[in-house]
């Protein structure tokens, strides 16, 4: 290790000698030296990025953790003169009646319904079916799906609000044909926001899977077909294993996006009625900026962060086991 940390001096002496015997003797250190230099070069090149990451991501993260241990508020006596109160915010969060557990469950519901089913599964089905469609159908349907994705989130939220609310498009349409409609935003707020988020986000998974599906070699499918595999078996045993990495990458991105989603739910239901769509991100906002308990809201943000980290950890492990994600090699 000492040799590694002192490469310049050692290398200098080797070159100065210019001696064949010495060169042979220094072969191992020379290789080490080269590797060290490579690492140093690499480190120098990523250093600016590292500084940026530490300054703009690392510090806010640390500050968030610190803040969550205080009683800081947006206004009131503890806004500027706040104290460290240890884990009191977390104790209050995890005590019964705080609403945190309900919010976590709602966030997981939202993740399951709108990300896994509405975006990943539905996106995959769409991409798979589109393989069989004519170019015209593919172009038209593909464009429509992508337009949903291009619509800014707040506009999508308002559109769905106008669609599902009392006196909204759906109610008036159904009434016109004599079907009674109970306002979905009130009777099924979680289904409403999940449908809206699926509608908005399916394009991303769809595009990812379309690209991956077009890379599946036709010979493999043909071979499986020759071996007597039916359509379901070809999908299950040939296509899905080949797409495993894509699926996991999709999961990583949509999981974080969905867990952190705030705009859509806040604009459509405000977390209500009551607290029936109060997912963790809305809970966090309400604590920090509606009841003005900044530190308490920050503590709930840390909980949200921890949940995101657990999911990321599982995905990364799985990806590693598959031999994908080797960027650190």
């Amino acid at each position: 290790m000492t040799r590694l940390s002192d490469p310049g001096e050692h290398g200098g002496s080797v070159v100065a000698n210019g001696n064949a015997a010495a060169l042979t003797g220094a072969l191992r250190p020379a290789r080490l030296r080269a590797r060290t230099r490579r690492r140093l070069t690499g480190l120098t090149m990523v250093a600016p990025m590292l500084v940026i990451v530490l300054a703009f991501l690392g510090w806010p993260l640390i500050w968030t953790l610190v803040l969550s241990l205080t009683n800081m508020t947006v206004t009131g006596p503890t806004a500027t003169h706040y104290q460290f109160i240890g884990l009191a915010n977390y104790r209050e969060l995890f005590a019964s009646g705080s609403g945190l557990v309900q919010s976590i469950l709602l966030s997981l519901y939202y993740l399951g319904a709108s990300a896994y089913i509405g975006q990943a599964l539905f996106g995959f089905v769409l991409a798979y079916l589109m393989l069989r469609c004519t170019t015209t159908v593919r172009k038209v349907v593909g464009s429509i799906i992508i337009v949903c994705w291009l619509v800014p989130e707040i506009i999508a939220a308002w559109m769905w609000f106008a669609m599902l609310s009392n006196g909204g498009t759906l109610q008036q349409g159904l009434h016109a044909v004599g079907i009674p409609y109970q306002t979905w935003l009130v009777s099924h707020p979680m289904i409403s926001v999940s449908v809206a988020n699926s509608w908005r986000g399916v394009a991303f998974s769809f595009l990812l899977f379309s690209a991956a599906l077009s890379d599946v070699p036709a010979e493999l499918i043909d071979a499986a077909q020759v071996d007597g595999a039916n359509a379901w078996q070809r999908l299950r045993s040939v296509i899905i294993p080949l797409l495993a990495t894509t699926i996991l990458v999709d999961f990583v991105l949509i999981t974080l996006g969905t867990l952190n989603d705030f705009t859509l739910i806040f604009a459509m239901t405000g977390g209500g009625p009551g607290t029936s769509s109060n997912v963790l991100s809305v809970f966090m906002y309400q604590q920090a900026f509606v009841t003005f308990r900044l530190a308490y809201g920050t503590a709930s943000a840390v909980v949200l962060l921890a949940i995101g980290a657990v999911f990321s950890f599982i995905y990364i492990r799985t990806l590693r086991r598959q031999g994908a994600l080797n960027f650190a090699r």
Binding site: V53, F56, L57, G58, P60, L61, W63, T64, V252, L256, N260, A301, L304, L305, G308, A309, S312, F313, I316, L325, F327, A328
Partner: peptide
């Protein structure tokens, strides 16, 4: 390292 990267990325999104 990769886990660290992900945590940091997730953190910025969440910290807001």
């Amino acid at each position: 390292a990769s886990l660290g990267c992900l945590v940091v990325v997730a953190a910025t999104v969440l910290v807001g």
